[in-house]
Nucleic acid binder design. Structure first.
Lengths: 216, 216, 216, 216
DNA sequence: GATGAATGAGGTTTCATTCAT
DNA sequence: TATGAATGAAACCTCATTCAT
């Protein structure tokens, strides 16, 4: 199963008029190439590099994605969604709630941290897209609930905390995985241990949002 | 007390030798303006914007900083160093090692997370400059040692872990402090709790670097 | 017949593959405009001037010539090569070796001396490009050989002497042809007469190169 | 005897008020430094380089020379004039008119050809300044007259021819003296031989100037 | 639909000249 | 008067996006 095959229109139809198939192939090629390039070099790469690598002209690229940002969002969303689904599946198959949570984070981070553009997107906009955010939230919500129900994590941990933890650590994986491979796993362990119900002190209350940010 | 006043040459002297005072004022203005702009909009802002805001011509800017990157590095290094010194001072004055550590992180993160360019620099190069890295490491080393000696943290926590933790969380502060002000403090608490010696399981060993990174 | 038509791909073909014809036309327009401007004002002209005169945008110009220097080199090489070929043809068709040589120089100088950038290139780098230098050398070698075989020039004249003579005089043509039109022809005649075998004294030996130049 | 000491005001006076002497020393330092730098790197060097090397501020430099071009002109004129005087003296002391002429050219070219800015000035404006041109002309006129009177050169050679010859060859010296040291002396010999009265054919008449230049 | 050449605003940097001290 | 920092108009080059073929 490859990544770039979401919008296949009604599989089974004989790719009516041929053009449609070509277009789809192009779209997939663009997404695939963009995925590689964005991951390697971040969101600032020249659009031509992507066009070149996907073997497609600029016009074609811009027909499919009216803006560089649209392409970026699509690619990130697609990859993210794929990873998420994958990690979710595996977590759901894991009996122990704690191990499910742990494994989930490990999988996600290993992927995300190798994608420069994705991590940039966290800094720029809090994540690739709204859809990703929601998807991510719902999966984590499920995992957290299992842990809470089992009494494994502090009772006042929220899903939002987990979402932020993911954001936070992905940065580290990107930064450190070349010079200190594997060190991020220590940090992950530390943070997850901090979630466990051994820790009895209540967490600070999340300030409710109220107007423009004060100096924190 | 403002930030941009490091190289003032022996305050008290009557602005030695002609225009030097004005130059210093300009330099300070540039650094100040650049600090604001870089923090707000990241390292990609137009140099002209900085020149305009500091009320100097392009030439002046480039006289003081031969390259945009030099300016960026200087600004980040200066701010970072200032924050670090400040936070260090306060931590050193705190009796309880654990509180010293906690307070130190809070202070640092509150500052760093409001500076977009700084956080970008983490993603791009692991931090603003080598000097910053060393400075940061040495301060954290001291704080960690105090905690270790007092038996407050897991014995296998390393200074490198703390450095990474800082990197990691600063991203979150940047990302989340507008929409969810104060939430990063929860994450900080979680992570720090994960450091405490309540947690008895040994951490994964930091893999020693061995050739090109595998897929983690 | 214009100058800027070297890379026309097999004339007669119907402008293969889409936009290629327009691109070629643009390339030609750029070279043509650059030729005029470089000739008139030298190699320091603003690239925009060339873009404006050729009716293309900056990007187009830089697509065809990644660097201003590339453009300059291309233009000079092309013109030079064209002149050289032309003058060579005519010289080859001239029976009398002496007249062939004479006519060749006249033609070349008349062209070169009207091109400011070309003459500048002599001062800066000894000529437009290596290829030009070789081409020029080989043509002059042929002409000189004919003269030598006919006993028309001093036996110790070398091809390198002729090459230098060309360099030398082109400067003069540029300098003098406005205020003293035609005077350079007198100088040319003088120099060529100095080559003839009437002059029996041996020329000074070309010092072999030996380390850094002394004060001559 | 150094070069930069022309405008010393009435030697013998005790440098009234000291300031005047300082100014003179500065002026000399500027000219000296500029001489070196212009010679080495041509007329495009940064003015600061000159200020730095002469140990003088920009303001001082511009007080003495309101324009970079003024400085350039002054320097070139001064050096040129010095060389010319020197070469003239030696030529005047040489009995044989032909040797006087020959030696004069050798001396002048050896000097000129080591000065990049000077040679550039030939291409740009026919020479450093009008004064130089006149001075040069008058000296050459004298040398030529001696040769003509002795019947050593073709009777229709003009002083203008000699001036051009000098211009022409100085380019070559600059270009070739590094890679082919001494070769320019061959060219000089050839050209001078071409002047000698052995050559009996009349030279082409200098076209009188008539309106804008035709295509030669 | 696909192509890739064209566009041109905008980015960083240089440097002759001015001017406050 | 000397200083050298300040100025700002270009200069070269890049790249997201459009458009003719």
């Amino acid at each position: 199963m490859t990544l770039a095959d979401q919008p296949t229109p009604a599989p089974g139809q004989p790719a009516q008029r041929g053009r449609r198939a070509d277009a789809e192939r192009n779209r997939a090629a663009i997404i695939e190439a963009a995925g590689v390039v964005f991951a390697e070099r971040g969101g600032t790469v020249d659009v031509r590099e992507i066009a070149r690598r996907s073997g497609v002209g600029m016009g074609t690229l811009y027909r499919h994605f009216p803006t560089k940002n649209d392409l970026l969002a699509t690619v990130l969303e697609q990859e993210f969604s794929y990873w998420l689904t994958d990690a979710h599946r595996q977590a759901a198959a894991t009996e122990d709630p704690w191990q499910a949570l742990t494994g989930f984070f490990e999988q996600m981070l290993a992927k995300q941290g190798r994608n420069r553009a994705l991590v940039e997107s966290y800094a720029a906009a809090g994540g690739p897209t709204e859809a990703c955010a929601r998807h991510c939230y719902s999966v984590m919500d499920e995992l957290l609930t299992r842990c809470l129900n089992a009494g494994l994590v502090r009772p006042d941990v929220t899903t939002a905390d987990l979402v932020l933890l993911n954001t936070s650590l992905s940065q580290t994986v990107l930064t450190a995985s070349d010079s200190h491979p594997g060190q991020w796993r220590r940090l992950l362990r530390i943070s997850l241990d901090g979630l466990s119900s051994h820790n009895t002190e209540p967490l600070p209350k999340p300030a409710t949002y109220a107007g423009p940010p004060t100096n924190d």
